[in-house]
Amino acid sequence: MVELRDISIAFGGIRAVDGVSLDLYPGEVVGLLGHNGAGKSTLIKCLSGAYKADHGQIFINGQEVTINNPRDAREYNIETIYQTLALADNLDAASNLFLGRELVTGGGLLDDARMEAETRRILARLNPNFKKFKDPVSALSGGQRQSVAIARAVYFNAKILIMDEPTAALGPQETQMVAELIHELKRDGLGIFLIDHDVHAVKQLCDRAAVMKNGQLVGVVKVDEVTEDDLLAMIILGKKPEHLAA
């Protein structure tokens, strides 16, 4: 469904991502592992439109595409949940959910009532405890903020979902909720890139894991074929485990 081919991007002489190729199939979750600064987030931002790759190609459903900005990415049904959540703290849930894609009335004015109704509908599904529709999102708990960010990605019929450390700021119960959601979305046939530090979570949630180090791809493995220790070794040593090395 998605194929990143030989992607490179450099910032001021430092090659943050160096010739990485990676693919993703429908209904699959691919975990991206690596140290801080390994280039995981940078790679994925080339796909979500936040950065433009210096070099390399992106294919979606076999067609080569150019993604210059987040708007382009959304055109291809690529939705991103950023680590920082990318919420405007001073706006309420509905405004954030529809930010950049507001519903308008015939006269071109914002249809706040309809946006709030839609927001209530989707959040009732994702997080039934969510009640604070009128408050700015700065007044919400970490889990509730996460719900808004996820709702934003899910509402617009994402085909490809990028989640950058979705559980970093969450408690165990909320983490469980996100895990269930990932399974549900997977059943619906979405392809998901999951960026995470946590080897354990990746092993549980993902089908395949891609490990990066210093901007380069160490390897892509099926999680069933490796142990957590193998994955850790890949992250730290930057080498594929011996039993998989061809």
Partner: peptide, 15 residues
């Protein structure tokens, strides 16, 4: 207001 609240988020939302 979105730009005022979080310029980065606004840019990521395609503004």
């Amino acid at each position: 207001f979105a730009i005022g609240g979080n310029p980065e988020a606004a840019a990521l939302a395609g503004i």
